[in-house]
Design a protein around this nucleic acid. Structure first.
Lengths: 211, 211
DNA sequence: ACGCTAACGGACGCCCCCGTCCACTTGGCT
DNA sequence: AGCCAAGTGGACGGGGGCGTCCGTTAGCGT
């Protein structure tokens, strides 16, 4: 009798599943989320039906494909908060986040919810933002982060970082690194900086927290 | 006999031409260059054939549609150079350029040559960059612009600015304004800033292989 | 008023992506 | 070895954008 649990895949099936995820990761990283499902299937060496059976929607595929990045994201903010010096922690978060997002175009799109509907990424983003808000507060109190810094500036920074396209992967990494350094300069408290224009309220397709 | 010059349009034709350009400007601004040609035709109230007769390629249409922005761009850098204080001129260029690019998503794409092949925008971009290079040199000498500023940082800034998407036009303008202010902070010479990571060599003409 | 022709736009065929159906194959258990 | 359901991929119909053709309309010059 078949005692096979319904959620246990056959060996060839789980093998295909892995290859699909590998292909998805690679293509999402270079091409972004707009890459056709069939392209992923082709790259994985499977038929379209197989891909759709495992991952009925592109969202499900992306969610699965980006679990590593999700964990990395959480780790970054946790490391930042654990840092004794809040300013150093803040810089760590900015540098590492830019680096992470520079690595995969698709992950950024997913994280910023270019996706039609809300997905698991939203929760992760909210967690990250909340954590960074607390870190920023401490960094301001320590006098290293400029007092007029707003959390929306960080979203702004992420959106901006996403705009950086280059020919090669290495060039993009370098560009993001330099960009992060410049952003940190902009956020650092300084006696000579003039007041900033009003904060831009950015809604990255997020659910309304306040009615 | 027809004395009509071959390059003189009939009244209804030139009227349609104007409406096509208006529609193109509006749609390019909000949707970007990827908007379908038919959408533009529909919005202009003409058939697809009429659109294609006037503007055989999307490039030609965009080139024509963005002449105003092209001139504005040139005016901005000229104003910046005319400014007696090079740092003020530099800031002027950054602020106005961000503002200009925030106004039309399509213009930014065209200016950054998301387009398949080289077009007139390339020359304009080269002129602007050369002018700004000279301005930056003076601003460095005056001690207001950080010495490790590179021209590629400006391209980086433009690419980043392009990444800023928002729901409303007003929000985008505000976001770009704040972004510009932060960028200026980052570029300003300061005794406390630490050395930057190496410059990222950016090839602004990023060819699109597939739509 | 008339005719010529520039100008128009609906319609066509092409290609690519989408999501699903179904007849065939194959892994795993007995 | 043999069974059979889980698994597979080719094929299909739908939808949309593309660029062009062609019969009809209407501006303009006489």
């Amino acid at each position: 009798m078949t005692d096979r649990l319904p959620h246990t895949l056959r060996s060839d099936a789980s093998d295909n599943r892995e290859r699909i995820l590998d292909a998805a990761r690679a293509l999402f990283a270079t091409e972004g989320l707009k890459v056709p499902m069939r392209e992923i299937a082709r790259h994985a060496g499977v038929g379209p039906a197989t891909l759709y059976r495992r991952f009925p929607t592109k969202q499900m595929l992306a969610t699965e494909a980006f679990t590593d990045e999700m964990h990395a994201c959480r780790a970054i903010v946790d490391e930042g908060r654990a840092e004794p010096d809040p300013w150093r922690g803040f810089c760590h978060v900015i540098e590492k986040t830019c680096e992470l997002h520079a690595r995969s175009r698709g992950f950024t799109e997913a994280f910023m919810s270019t996706f039609p509907d809300a997905m698991d990424f939203v929760a992760e983003r909210e967690y990250a933002l909340r954590s960074i808000a607390e870190l920023a507060h401490r960094a301001k109190d320590a006098g290293h982060l400029r007092p007029d810094f707003a959390l929306d500036d960080l979203v702004l920074m992420l959106m901006a970082n996403r705009g950086i396209h280059t020919t090669s992967k290495a060039a993009r990494a370098a560009a993001s690194r330099r960009f992060a350094a410049l952003v940190i300069q902009a956020f650092q408290a300084s006696p000579q900086h003039s007041p900033l224009p009003p904060v831009a309220r950015l809604a990255p397709a997020a659910p309304r927290k306040t009615g």
